[in-house]
């Protein structure tokens, strides 16, 4: 066991994050901003536009809430997902297949676990940045009604962590840009169905179970509970889901990087 784990880390993931921060400074900020505006546009169009026709809708505790307040936490969870997934799929793919960045990193005293954690943290920061901006928009629109909403920030980090680890692990198996399109193929239906814009109770039970197995539903339910300050045993299930997803994902990424570049 010791032999299998030796050489995986020198405890310097921070150097990988530092590199990413320097690279981001030189990136096209427009690309970064689009990821932020997508959920904001949804909130304005759906929340205010359609919300006016829908009126109120039962919230997590059964009490009625405005449609905008209902979808806002869901959009914040999606926002965290977007940022984390875009970074951990497209950007990571480029670094694995084309720029050979990870190969270069691994020819220094960095180990695969350092690279995995550093890159996941970076994707997570991007997801968190989107979520934080979105929380600001929610506050401005008067959609934050509980102090528990502050807990939505660390939760956004947790959601981004889970998706970043999942995204990076999946990307390590991809060989062409075409395969990356699968990411969108999964992201869009998951976004539309995971109780983002309407409760999943409209679906037959089988479909409900399927949706409840997917990560975004847990993220959305968790965010929605916090937005109104309702905690139930399910809250901990949601948190646990993302902790496991993130940890398992990070381990998978480490092993994949080792398999790809140390062979």
């Amino acid at each position: 066991m010791r032999a299998a784990l030796s050489g995986l880390s020198s405890g310097r993931s921070w150097a990988v994050v530092e590199r990413a921060l320097r690279a981001i400074g030189r990136m096209n900020w427009l690309v970064i901003l689009t990821g932020f505006f997508e959920p904001v546009l949804y909130l304005l169009a759906m929340g205010l536009g359609m919300g006016g026709m829908i009126g109120s809708i039962p919230g997590p505790d059964g009490r009625p809430m405005s449609y905008a307040a209902y979808i806002a936490p869901a959009l914040m969870a999606s926002s965290a997902m977007n940022g984390a997934l875009i970074d951990s799929t497209f950007n990571v793919f480029f670094k694995i297949r084309f720029s050979k960045l990870y190969e270069t990193m691994l020819s220094t005293s960095l180990g695969p676990a350092d690279v995995a954690i550093g890159e996941i943290v970076m994707a997570l920061l991007r997801g968190a940045l989107y979520a934080l901006g979105f929380l600001g928009v929610m506050g401005t629109m008067g959609l934050v009604t509980s102090w528990w909403a502050l807990a939505m920030i660390p939760v956004a980090l947790l959601i981004a962590f889970g998706f970043a680890a999942l995204g990076m692990a999946t990307t390590s198996f991809m060989r062409t840009f075409q395969q990356l399109d699968l990411v969108f193929l999964v992201m869009l239906p998951m976004f539309l169905l995971s109780s983002t814009l309407f409760p999943i109770t409209v679906f037959p039970p089988v479909v409900q179970w399927l949706i409840m197995a997917l990560p975004l539903w847990h993220g959305i339910e968790l965010m929605r509970q916090l937005s109104v300050g309702i905690l139930t045993p399910m809250t901990f299930v949601h948190v646990g889901y993302f902790v496991v997803l993130g940890v398992v994902g990070a381990i998978a990424v480490t092993l994949r990087l080792r398999k790809l570049f140390l062979r």
């Binding site: 310097r12 150097a15 030189r26 990136m27 720029s99 960045l101 220094t108 005293s109 960095l110």
Partner: peptide, 17 residues
């Protein structure tokens, strides 16, 4: 590292160590 300037290539690489 094509995403970094010449000088940063050296700095960042040193930080890896």
């Amino acid at each position: 590292d094509t995403e970094l300037l010449v000088r940063d290539n050296l700095i960042v690489y040193g930080r890896y160590f």
